[in-house]
Design a protein around this nucleic acid. Structure first.
Length: 285
DNA sequence: AGGGGGACCTGTGCGC
DNA sequence: TGCGCACAGGTCCCCC
């Protein structure tokens, strides 16, 4: 589900209810996510206050008042559900697992004002881990991630430099988090369409004006998606329960055989590195 | 060394 | 209605 715009939407929703508040309880229903929750996860969080919630690539970073940092990834199907506790006297009260929607809510955080934040992840490709402010930058999950695409300093020249010598298709290069952070299958397809670049083009040929164009397309697609509250496919919702609506603005993603919004030729689908790519073979070169 | 393929999981939708 | 298959927003490990 979540690419950079969705994770950013989740971050904003969580920040509004968690920042400045103590975590009074952490209930782990299932700790066997993509990797097992670290030893002592719940104990490390309980009683700590959330100072800030940040985002790096598709990771959420919960900064706690003792220097602990919780690293969380939503995987393909993860989401955060915010709800007022049914009974504020029993902050670890958990909804009946047999109730609809509760089955995949693996971790429940209760914060000081009686609000529950529940991590739901049907496929369990998500993960959570612990670091400290000192070790965060060197954490294996974060150490080799490339620049944030929305950083002011990330310009066409910086993108071009990171694509130099790459023989892989530009589609695959943009999915590689070491080259640029936060992009996923949807927004890569959309950005390549906006830049009129073929997903099959060898990455090293994206230099100069092409790199400038691609860089501008990446930024504008991401910013528009964040503005729209992300994209809601299937059941993904922002923590507030509101759905994002950027999916209505997809130009090519998921639109195989539909007319290209620019030239009306049918949109093609192909598979690259095991992932579907949607593009217009006439507009994108 | 870098890149592609499979693995990790569960749910859903479609064709037969 | 039921079954089996294809496919899904991500990442990691292994092998060439």
């Amino acid at each position: 589900m979540p690419e950079l715009p969705e994770v950013e939407t989740v971050r904003r929703g969580l920040a509004a209810v968690m920042e400045g508040r103590p975590i009074v309880n952490v209930l782990v229903r299932r700790g066997d996510l993509r990797r097992p929750l670290p030893e002592g996860f719940a104990a490390a969080l309980t009683g700590r206050t959330v100072i800030a919630i940040d985002r790096r690539a598709k990771y959420l970073l919960f900064r706690l008042d003792d220097g602990t940092v919780v690293i969380a990834h939503l995987g393909m199907s993860g989401s955060m559900v915010i709800e007022q506790a049914v009974d504020s006297q029993a902050p670890d009260a958990f909804p009946d697992p047999n109730m609809a929607g509760g089955k995949h809510e693996h971790i429940v955080f209760s914060v000081g004002n009686g609000t529950q934040i529940r991590f739901s992840d049907p496929r369990r490709f998500g993960l959570m881990d612990l670091a400290t402010e000192e070790t965060l930058a060197d954490h294996p999950l974060l150490a080799s991630i490339g620049p944030e695409p929305l950083e002011e300093s990330f310009d066409g020249a910086a993108l071009a430099a990171r694509l130099t010598g790459k023989r892989t298709p530009i589609k695959s290069a943009l999915l590689d988090q070491r080259i640029v952070a936060g992009l996923g299958n949807i927004y890569v397809c959309e950005a390549l369409f906006a830049a009129a670049l073929s997903p099959r083009r060898s990455a090293h040929t994206v230099q100069g004006g092409r790199a400038d164009r691609l860089l501008r397309s990446i930024k504008s697609v991401l910013l528009a998606a964040i503005e729209a509250g992300g994209s809601t496919l299937r059941d993904h919702v922002a923590p507030s329960g509101e759905i994002g609506y950027f999916q209505h603005n997809f130009q090519v993603y998921g639109r195989e055989d539909e007319p290209c919004p620019s030239c009306a030729q049918p949109i093609h689908r192909l598979v690259q590195a095991g992932r579907s790519t949607f593009f217009c073979s006439r507009c994108q070169r």
